[in-house]
Amino acid sequence: MAVQSPVRAAPATAPREPGSASRRRSPVSWVRRGGLSTLLFLLPLLIVFGVFSWAPIVQSVVMSFQRTNLVGPAEFVGLDNFVQVLTDPLLWTALENTLWFAFLALLFGYPIPLVVAVLISEVRARRGLFSALAYLPVVVPPVVAVLLWKFFYDASPSGVFNTVLGWVGLGPWQWLQDQGSAMPALVLEATWAAAGGTVIIYLAALAGVPADLYEAAEIDGAGIWRKVWHVTLPRLRTVLLVTFILQIIGTAQVFLEPFLFTGGGPANSTTTLLLLIYDYAFANSLGGDYGAATALSIMLAAALAVFSVVYFRLTKSWSGS
């Protein structure tokens, strides 16, 4: 409120400036009212955000209209980069793959953490141990996790997973080496790697559910499933909606798994949008197509922003609990 009052007071005291709104304060009054110290305190934050967040964003928007190799002078090419990206047949493959990944990740990655969290919260003894075990994969550095799983996914009969499958008379499966199974294999690892974080969020939310609701449900004769359905899920609604959108945004930007596991192969079956962006920029050692890469990045960011806004509008009425 302290910031707002001088704005209202300004018209009475400030001299009129030609061409400016009459509500505008004079710099002198701004300084007198502590504007400088406000700016001074803001400055470190502004510089950090400016240099590391905003500048790259603005630069990439500019670059999406340019042709440049980052060494020589850049040339403005209008919408050429966007046209080039939109007419690249690989874009649709990448989009399809990304949607397929997102769908599989939702199918497995969304309900599993919830089930695990509910189970852990139901356990009376050693809850801490189970939480720690569920969270453990998140602690493993992602690159190490992928390399480990690459080893597990060895498609020869002596591979780790294939050996286990062999014990029950199955396999050997091709895992990453087959165009059909490569993407599900990536999702499996991604789910394993990310579930722990979501489990912890759900556990925290579950702790906030008042115990008397469960007691009341029990008195009414509700079993575990009815308790989950009628008490737990409605109480977690807001968190569930947020984790849903975060998961969609996260999966739309999947890069690490296809990059490290398959490089987009076999035969582009795991080329995702972000990997395509990376390929535009870096696959050619003689200066990649940074314009196309940034153009696609901007389009992806815009699509996700629109999706988020629409999603929150649509679910606004559900989330108020």
């Binding site: 707002q4 701004w30 700016l39 803001l42 510089i47 400016g50 240099v51 905003w54 603005v58």
Partner: peptide, 21 residues
Amino acid sequence: MKSSRIRILTTALVVPFALSA
């Protein structure tokens, strides 16, 4: 209020460019 925001935003955008230039 609005103009001061714009000023701050402009500073925030210009400073990093000046630095990176």
